[in-house]
Design a protein around this nucleic acid. Structure first.
Length: 191
DNA sequence: TGCCCGATTAACT
DNA sequence: GTTAATCGGGCAA
């Protein structure tokens, strides 16, 4: 039986939490799968929403770790983050892709795509597949409707530059499961 | 108040 | 390869 993750799991640096979450299982209302891609954001990071201090949108990032930060991206999509570190440090990991394993019919219906590879391969797609919106803003990650389970076996984690940024583009703060076909984009392979 | 731009996606040429 | 969809934050005036 996999170990359930409590909110204390997030009371550490994003760079400790992110690699440990690769291969973990996320369920929302019993639908979801295995986390294969994440990005880290930190309050000293010019690309982070928390960089310029608290606003109504990012307020939960300045609170205790282990809660959901949801925001609207490009006016269209929802994106889900897990708040990390001791309270007030305003850092979080962005869920970028999961491998869908539980509740595939519901995810296919919500996404309306033919290929299962496209169900959750991207931050906006993932939220559409799990039906996560601003209504989930600030919810605890260790209480229903969220469920988080630690990974069972060993995994190979790869890192690289984050996607879609114009600031701090060279920070290698993107974490992924090596070789997963469910990544939003492939990681650059070493020469 | 007005304007620009973004942690994106899908549908184009 | 390019572009439209669409809205909240940040900053200038």
């Amino acid at each position: 039986m996999p170990k359930r993750l409590s909110r204390g799991f997030f009371k550490r640096s994003v760079h400790e939490v992110a690699p440990e979450l690769i291969g973990a299982t996320l369920l929302f209302n019993g639908v979801g799968g295995r986390i294969v891609e994440l990005e880290a954001y930190h309050h000293t990071d010019p690309a982070a929403h928390s960089y310029n201090g608290p606003t109504r949108r990012n307020a939960v990032m300045f609170g205790p770790p282990g809660f959901a930060y949801v925001y609207r991206s490009y006016g269209i999509h929802w994106c889900l983050n897990f708040v990390c570190e001791p309270e007030g440090s305003a850092s979080a990991v962005l869920l970028r892709a999961i491998e869908p394993t539980v509740g595939l019919p519901a995810m296919r219906r919500r996404r309306g795509v033919k290929a299962d590879r496209l169900l959750c391969s991207g931050p906006g797609r993932l939220c559409q597949a799990l039906s996560i919106t601003i209504a989930e803003y600030g919810l605890a990650l260790d209480e229903p409707p969220f469920e988080l389970f630690a990974r069972s076996g060993d995994v190979e984690v790869v890192t690289g530059p984050r996607i879609g940024l114009t600031k701090a583009v060279d920070y290698p703060w993107r974490y992924g499961l090596k070789g997963s076909p469910f990544l939003s984009k492939p990681f650059k392979t070493p020469i």
